[in-house]
């Protein structure tokens, strides 16, 4: 696969949300607005890229039977690193995303890419894979966030275009499932073409 292909595959062919259907919890929970979705995507991308790089470096020397625990430790380390940095420099974002920052550890996308890609490929390719999947994840989360914010609050990235409230259900829990469901339908329809 070409280097460019590695970066762009996350958008459509291996889109983490619509095709691989991984990392559903943060996808549903943090997309109450476009900005929240974007921030969650970036946080996940940070961990994804760094853990992909390190795991592709250490994979050759890690014994097979303990590779999963080792990968989990590496991923958890980067998540904790991210937690500390966010608490120090972006405390507001850290508070908004809350529980879902530590939960990046168990985001199946991160461990999935480590296992399926980074452990078998070169450092450069693994970094590009991290960027590609990360960008795909971030964009998807932002799109879901935009849809929910437009319908639920009548605004985009905090900019209000209608007076009063939107359809509140869309910023609450049910809206997350409904919007994701209908966007999947749309994605399937368009992908079939």
């Amino acid at each position: 696969m070409s280097k460019l292909g590695l970066i762009t595959k996350g958008l459509l062919k291996e889109n983490p949300t619509f095709v691989l259907v991984l990392g559903m919890c943060p996808t549903l929970a943090t997309t109450t607005s476009a900005m929240n979705g974007l921030e969650m995507g970036l946080a996940t991308m940070f961990v994804l890229i760094l853990s992909n790089i390190v795991i592709s470096l250490i994979a050759p020397v890690v014994p097979d039977k303990v590779h999963i625990p080792v990968y989990i430790v590496v991923i958890a380390t980067f998540v904790t690193l991210l937690q500390l940095l966010m608490q120090a420099y972006t405390p507001d974002v850290y508070e908004t995303l809350g529980l879902f920052i530590p939960l990046i550890v168990v985001n199946c996308i991160v461990l999935g890419r480590a296992e399926a890609f980074a452990s078998k490929n070169s450092v450069v390719d693994s970094a590009l894979d991290g960027i590609g999947i990360g960008v795909g994840f971030t964009l998807t989360l932002t799109v879901i966030g935009i849809v929910r914010e437009v319908l639920g609050s009548g605004s985009v990235f905090g900019w209000k275009f209608i007076a009063g409230d939107g359809m509140l259900a869309f910023v609450m829990a049910p809206g997350a499932f409904l919007v994701l469901g209908y966007l999947m339908v749309l994605f399937n329809k368009l992908a079939k073409r």
Partner: peptide, 14 residues
């Protein structure tokens, strides 16, 4: 498959 499943969960969540 999954799309209708998500929509169903949405209605359950409602």
């Amino acid at each position: 498959g999954l799309p209708i499943a998500f929509i169903t969960v949405g209605i359950m969540a409602l």
